[in-house]
Design a binder for these strands. Structure first.
Length: 122
DNA sequence: AGGGTGACGATCA
DNA sequence: ATGATCGCCACCC
């Protein structure tokens, strides 16, 4: 059943909910899910949740640009499942232009997160 | 309390 | 386009 090693924390709950909102035949990205859950910049946590919590439509979450992050067999399976749902790929990327799920505009209450602007690299 | 971690993401070479 | 690096940040020992 549920592996759930992670005791439900607000972050985990919010992320799971966001993932469950992605309809069949559509996809999203780790970053988008994190933002929709109210935790921008926590894309890596989305990945962790996907790995630890089962019962989620894991195949619908891709890396930015629609790339599949999983390696090997698992990655192949993800692609297969998505194509089965009708998601089409252009090369190695899913066609986000058409299949990316759009979360509610308000994208969840902006927790107590600081906007955090991008700092100029170098 | 402290440090390592990761199904990421943006930028650089 | 591809590969390496750096920054992130809550979680888990």
């Amino acid at each position: 059943m549920k592996s759930k090693r992670t005791h439900s924390t607000p972050l985990v709950t919010a992320i799971c909910n966001a993932i469950r909102q992605i309809p069949r035949g559509h996809v999203s990205s780790y970053g988008a899910v994190a933002k929709a859950a109210g935790y921008p910049r926590c894309s890596r946590h989305v990945a962790r949740v996907l790995k630890q919590v089962d019962g989620l439509p894991w195949q619908r979450v891709l890396g930015s640009g629609g790339r599949i992050s999983l390696r090997g067999e698992l990655g192949m399976e993800q692609r297969f499942l998505l194509e089965s749902e009708g998601v089409r790929f252009r090369g190695k990327r899913a066609d986000m232009k058409v299949f990316e799920h759009r979360f509610a505009v308000g994208k969840r209450k902006p927790r107590a997160v600081i906007p955090k602007k991008r700092l100029p690299r170098k």
